[in-house]
Each structure stands twice: as C-alpha cells, then as structure tokens.
C-alpha cells in the first residue's frame, strides 16, 4: 500500500508538471507553481535531515571511540559551532560565521581542490603514454590545448590558441554533443520509468 501511494504521488506530480508545460490553463499552471515551491521546502528539510544524519553517524563512532574518532569529533564540533554562530549572529560580513568561513572552511576547500595539480602531474608522468595511435592523438591534442590556454603557449607560437580553440569548437564539440544527447535520452527514459512506477529505487 505504501509503495502504491508513493508511486501515485510521483506519477501525479510528474504528470501535472508535464501538463503545465503544454497547457495555458491557469489552474494547472498555478498548481504546478505550488508544487515547485513545495520542492524547495521539502529540499530545505532534507538538508536538515542530512545534518541530523551526519551527527548521528559520527556521534556513535565518537561514543565508541572507533576508527578516526578524533577527526569525527572535530567534524561534529564544527558542524555545531558553525550552526550556532550562524543562528545567533547571522552569516553577514564580520560575524563569527563569516570569520570561520573565510579563514577555515574556504581555504581548506580550496586546498583540497588545488592538491589535484600535484596528483595530475604525477599521474600524467606515470600513465600518459603514447602506446597506441589513439593515445598519441590524445597526447598531442592535450598538449596543444594545455599550451593554447596559457599566455606562455601564445608566446611560444601565436597560432597555438587558434588551434586550441578549433579543437574545442569542433572535435570536442562533436563528442560533447553526443554525450549530452545520450544523457538527455537517458534522463527522459528514467523520468518515464519513474512516472509509470517501473523505477522505484528512489523509495529506498
């Protein structure tokens, strides 16, 4: 019974959105607009559930002094600390939340991302080999694009950015378009499966 109710809600919600796309009927359009507002409300609550879930999982490990419990303690302290700062003093400029964000969270996230440069260099050195014709073409293309996207490449040869742009605008575009069309067809098929109740994995 529970599954049938969930499937019916999914079907009706999706069907109303499809109807609203093709219809000029103000009742249907207004109802679809209400549904969109509900999505943002339910989504907001799901964010809150996410925080509860993080706390529940990590507090259990801390309590049992499990693996890496000290890191989980730091995580929990910061989740609670930033939440309290945000709720009590707000998130505007020069508030404790803003200080924590600007001086801890933001630099840490940028650091995590920038470490990629080191691993890309190391991986490229070890794995990027001209073993086959295809790999050689990929290697040459990568070198042209990488150099063409920098002022140094332009200084070496002023035509390099033009060739890099050509690669992006033609061979790259052809492949990307194929990927986009494939993904869109897949998304349409998946949506239909959900609407018709064939796909039910989203229910957990």
């Amino acid at each position: 019974m529970r599954t049938q109710i969930n499937t019916a809600i999914a079907f009706l919600s999706g069907f109303i959105m499809i109807l609203a796309f093709f219809s000029a009927n103000s009742g249907i359009v207004n109802f679809s607009q209400n549904l969109l507002t509900w999505v943002t409300i339910v989504g907001g609550i799901s964010l809150l559930l996410g925080i509860v879930s993080i706390l529940k999982v990590n507090l259990k490990v801390i309590q049992e002094k499990g693996k890496d419990w000290i890191f989980k303690l730091i995580l929990v302290l910061f989740v609670l600390g930033m939440s309290v700062c945000g709720i009590v003093w707000g998130i505007e400029e020069k508030t404790p939340f803003d200080w924590l964000f600007q001086n801890i969270q933001s630099p840490m996230m940028s650091t995590m991302f920038s470490i990629l440069a080191f691993f890309i260099a190391s991986a490229a050195y070890r794995a990027f080999r001209a073993r086959t014709l295809e790999a050689t073409i990929l290697l040459i293309t990568a070198i042209i694009v990488m150099l063409g996207r920098t002022p140094l490449g332009q200084a070496i040869w002023d035509k390099l950015p033009t060739y890099a742009d050509w690669i992006m605008a033609y061979p790259n575009l052809a492949v990307q378009r194929g990927i986009i069309i494939g993904a869109a067809l897949g998304a349409a098929a998946m949506s239909l499966r959900i609407l018709l109740g064939i796909e039910r994995t989203y229910m957990g």
Binding site: I120, A121, Y125, L139, I143, M146, L147, R149, L152
Partner: peptide
Amino acid sequence: IHFAIIFFV
C-alpha cells in the same frame, strides 16, 4: 604549471 606537466609527460 601547464608547461611543467607537459614536460613531465
């Protein structure tokens, strides 16, 4: 950095 990565490759 792009030049260095190309050098390593």
